[in-house]
């Protein structure tokens, strides 16, 4: 449904998106996760035909976003960041205007407006001037607009930013529901949100895709990178040799201080060496004061990535 091939985007000397590729099949919610300034919005602008890529190609619902832009736009619903709307218009006026731009006839528009008003819980707010609505309500009007023509693909840029916790929960459950009928691509810089709403996650930082997959897959991928940290009292050399000889151990770093030896063990993929370490220590009679997994969660990984991007691209 969405194909992105080797897309790069430069703003002057700044490389906002650096040669990214990904495919999204029909249906489901795909999360675009990354720290601020990672290139999420830029990628979305390219996909929704707002700005062309500097190089590479992208297509939505089988239509190239550059060469068949109007066709691609007909099949896409887009909620830009910060939900820009015309404050002087009433909600239903706005939706009529948008429906007309989408080539919908009046009966069709009335039906569609009723449908999106119900789905976005707009109720009577739909007939109020948009400028008088709260941030959350405006967000819903924007979402209603994106869904109005029942598009194949919905692109939602930070759909929950600026909402209160209740509204966030409602919006998330709406997005999940939308994923049953449409292909939804949403961006977020909140890991927790993506974990909750998305079937698949694409992690992007400094313009590059650094990981993608379902939450479980990602979880597995990162626990493979996790290290086991242990602190044991005993002779450092003997300990290093003994640990290295364990079957699941790939590598070990040893640092000794005031009698205690700190081991940072990198296990082989799909091996948990904690039990072996414990057994080794007890068989030798060494005392063990700490043993833990480091960097095992997606969160640890995400925090690390975010920090790295900030170091290399200070904003």
């Amino acid at each position: 449904m969405i194909r992105v091939e080797n897309v790069s985007k430069k703003y002057g000397p700044l490389l906002a998106v650096d040669n990214i590729s990904f495919h999204v099949e029909r249906g489901g919610v795909v999360g675009f996760l990354g720290p601020n300034g990672a290139g999420k919005s830029t990628t979305m602008k390219i996909l929704t035909c707002f700005q062309p890529a500097t190089s590479g190609s992208a297509s939505v619902a089988g239509f190239d976003v550059f060469k068949q832009s109007l066709e691609a736009r007909r099949r896409t619903g887009y909620l830009p960041e910060n939900t820009p709307l015309y404050p002087e218009m009433r909600g239903d006026e706005f939706l009529h205007f948008r429906g007309k731009l989408r080539g919908m006839q009046r009966p069709q528009r009335l039906e569609a407006i009723k449908r999106v008003t119900d789905r976005c819980w707009l109720g009577d707010f739909i007939s109020r001037p948009i400028g008088h609505l709260s941030k959350g309500m405006r967000q819903r009007v924007g979402l209603a607009d994106a869904m109005l023509h029942d598009p194949d693909v919905l692109v939602l840029d930070e759909p929950t930013i600026g909402l209160d916790p209740n509204q966030i929960r409602e919006t998330r459950s709406l997005i999940k529901e939308l994923g049953e009928r449409h292909t939804v691509l949403l961006s977020s810089h909140i890991l927790h949100e993506v974990e909750q709403t998305c079937d698949r996650t694409i992690i992007i930082a400094a313009g590059k895709i650094i990981a993608s997959g379902s939450t479980d897959e990602l979880q597995k991928q990162f626990s493979a990178h996790a290290r086991v940290i242990a602190e044991i009292k005993g002779p450092a050399d003997e300990m290093a040799a003994g640990v290295k000889a364990l079957p699941g151990v790939q590598d070990v770093e040893v640092t000794a201080s005031d009698g205690w030896v700190r081991l940072a063990v990198s296990p082989k993929p799909d091996h948990d060496v904690r039990e072996d370490l414990f057994k080794l220590a007890t068989s030798k009679g060494w005392s063990l004061r700490e043993i833990r997994l480091e960097g095992a969660t997606l969160e640890d990984f995400f925090v690390k990535v975010t920090a790295e991007q900030q170091r290399s691209h200070p904003l």
Binding site: K45, T48, C49, F50, L70, R73, R74, T76, Y78, P80, N82, P84, L85, Y86, P87, R98, L101, R102, G103, G142, D145
Partner: peptide, 14 residues
């Protein structure tokens, strides 16, 4: 200024 250009130009209009 308001950014509505983004919703406008991503609708099928030239």
């Amino acid at each position: 200024r308001s950014g509505t250009i983004e919703t406008l130009m991503t609708a099928p209009i030239t």
